[in-house]
Simulated assay, not measured.
Amino acid sequence: MIGRRGFLKFFGSSIVGLMTLGGYAFGYEPVVRLSIARYQLTPPGWTPGLKLRIVALADFHACTPWMTADRIASICARANDLGGDIIVLLGDYTSGTDFVTGHVDHRVWAAELAALKAPLGVHAIVGNHDWWHDATAQKRGAGPTFSHKALADVGIPVYSNRSARLEKDGYGFWLAGVEDQLALRRSVRWKRQFTTGLDDLSGTLAQVNDVAPVILLAHEPDIFPTVPSRVSLTLSGHTHGGQVRVFGWSPYLPSRYGDRYVYGHIVEENRHIIVSGGLGCSVAPVRVGVPPEIVVIDLG
């Protein structure tokens, strides 16, 4: 039987352990750590000879104290140093948690993102929180949201069910971006019974008019089962890799497919998707086992 001294020692060490874990989960991993997740692949339909480096940033969730303007600036500086041919932003620039000391204005975070530079430019989509926190867009059931406007105002094109043809070293490829799949929130106030998406995958891909490979930007990875093989690679965020992940298990996964598309490079029926672990926090300002990350993808 454990004695009083032994119990108190065990209890004390447990409290210290919990405090240490809590400090790490709330104060270190979300706001200090920054990892680089690297992938290298040649997906189906990729043009021989075309080598492309993509730097992808997802889920900033700007707010204080977890994702300040200074923190965004430092992430952008690191992204610029990674040698990307193109930089893509995968949505959710606004705060995703109520546990904040303040909000970072959309004009402020957009100004920091304007520092991103790449030879083939910076290209963006928006996410569900960009829609959900814009009451005007929710009321009218249509965009643009303040995130659309803020990005456009600093010269970053936003893809809302749009495809554009780009070229590197004489080789063409398409960048396609769908509007958010959860854009219009279920609301008694707005007389909306169900959360509704504004994504139009077929209409977006109908704009592709040659055989060059297609890279699809879609904030939520749940679209992936419907993505045709014509798309060489899908890039998504939204899940934060589970945000808390212990021995491969996460207590909460914001996907109707559970763990299927939670993180990383997934291949199904010779179709490829890479899901970023993201940079910020949603629901609760905590990260364990899924540090904020910048994604670097070398294609070809």
Rank of each mutant, 00 (worst) to 15 (best):
E29R: 12
G121Q: 02
D105S: 15
A150H: 04
V88S: 11
A142R: 11
L52P: 08
T97I: 14
R78E: 14
F26K: 12
T226I: 14
V214T: 11
R107H: 07
G264Y: 05
G96F: 01
H61D: 01
D105L: 07
P221V: 13
V188R: 15
L57E: 02
G300H: 01
N209G: 14
H238A: 11
S187D: 06
S35L: 13
L175C: 08
I294R: 02
G121R: 07
A25N: 10
P254D: 12
F60N: 01
L182F: 15
A58M: 07
S13R: 13
R53L: 03
G17E: 05
L52H: 06
I125C: 06
N209Q: 15
V267S: 07
V188W: 10
C76S: 07
W66Q: 14
T239V: 02
A37W: 12
F173G: 12
I87Y: 04
V295H: 00
G258T: 10
F194S: 13
A135M: 05
T42W: 07
V108K: 05
V32S: 09
T204Q: 06
G172W: 01
A62H: 07
R192G: 15
E268R: 09
H106D: 15
A111V: 08
T234C: 04
A212V: 11
A69W: 03
D134V: 00
T196G: 01
F10D: 07
E112C: 11
A73L: 08
Y24F: 15
V286N: 04
A135C: 05
L52Y: 07
Y263C: 02
C63I: 12
E179S: 10
R162Q: 13
H219E: 06
Y28F: 14
L18Q: 05
P43A: 14
L151D: 04
S202K: 12
E167I: 05
S236W: 01
L89C: 09
W190T: 11
A62P: 00
F11I: 13
V208H: 04
R78V: 09
T101R: 15
H219L: 10
A212F: 04
H61R: 01
A110G: 08
Y252F: 14
P213C: 09
G289L: 13
S95T: 13
Y24Q: 03
R271D: 09
R189N: 13
T195N: 08
K9P: 01
G23H: 02
K149G: 11
F60S: 05
S13D: 04
V126Q: 03
P291K: 10
D169M: 06
C281S: 13
P213K: 07
Q138F: 11
M67V: 10
P221D: 05
S147I: 13
N80T: 11
F10E: 08
G23N: 04
A212Y: 06
L57K: 09
C76H: 00
P119G: 08
N80E: 03
A62G: 05
G83S: 14
L198I: 12
L116T: 04
G289K: 02
P213A: 06
V267C: 15
A135V: 10
